[in-house]
Amino acid sequence: MNRPVLFIGTAIAAALIAVLFVGLGNDPQQIRSPMIGRPAPAFALKEVGTGQTLDLQALRDTPTIINFWATWCMPCYQEHPVLIDNARLFGSKVQFVGVVFNDDEASIQKFLRERGSAFPTLLDQQGKTAIAYGVGGVPETFFLDRQGIIVAKFSGPMTTDVLQANLEKAIR
């Protein structure tokens, strides 16, 4: 029995297996956002349709949902009715804001005409707002509490359950 070989070999093997085993519990596709717990980056963006500017500062004291999306994104089609239904359901208690990422105004207006709208939709030029929020792919949704702190983030198309579960953290 060669003890050094046994000990060193076992140490290397145990370390490798342990790391891989812990790794099995992670989903590498689900990137956790460092933005959670931080104040949401301020912005003032032009609203599609009206041409007016909406300033995030003005939404203080209202829990806010910021949804990043685009008309070229297939899952966004799925998610749109969920957002509209919930925006109508919560009415003035929660403010919904859509930020359209990398798109042109004409396609957005066509999309909203055909599929309806229930909350302001803002235009993000050159993706600057998306980058400040750490948006990777659309759709991504941020939940802000009354103080304007990001309390949750969801990547991918939301269902009503997901939306309301995350919203609870923002209302609390």
Binding site: F43, A44, T53
Partner: peptide, 20 residues
């Protein structure tokens, strides 16, 4: 409600200067 929130302001995206 929404109309109240929308003011005629300068468009201002978040900028690196705020953070770094």
């Amino acid at each position: 409600m929404i109309l109240l929130l929308i003011a005629l302001l300068q468009v201002k995206a978040p900028d690196a200067a705020q953070f770094v």
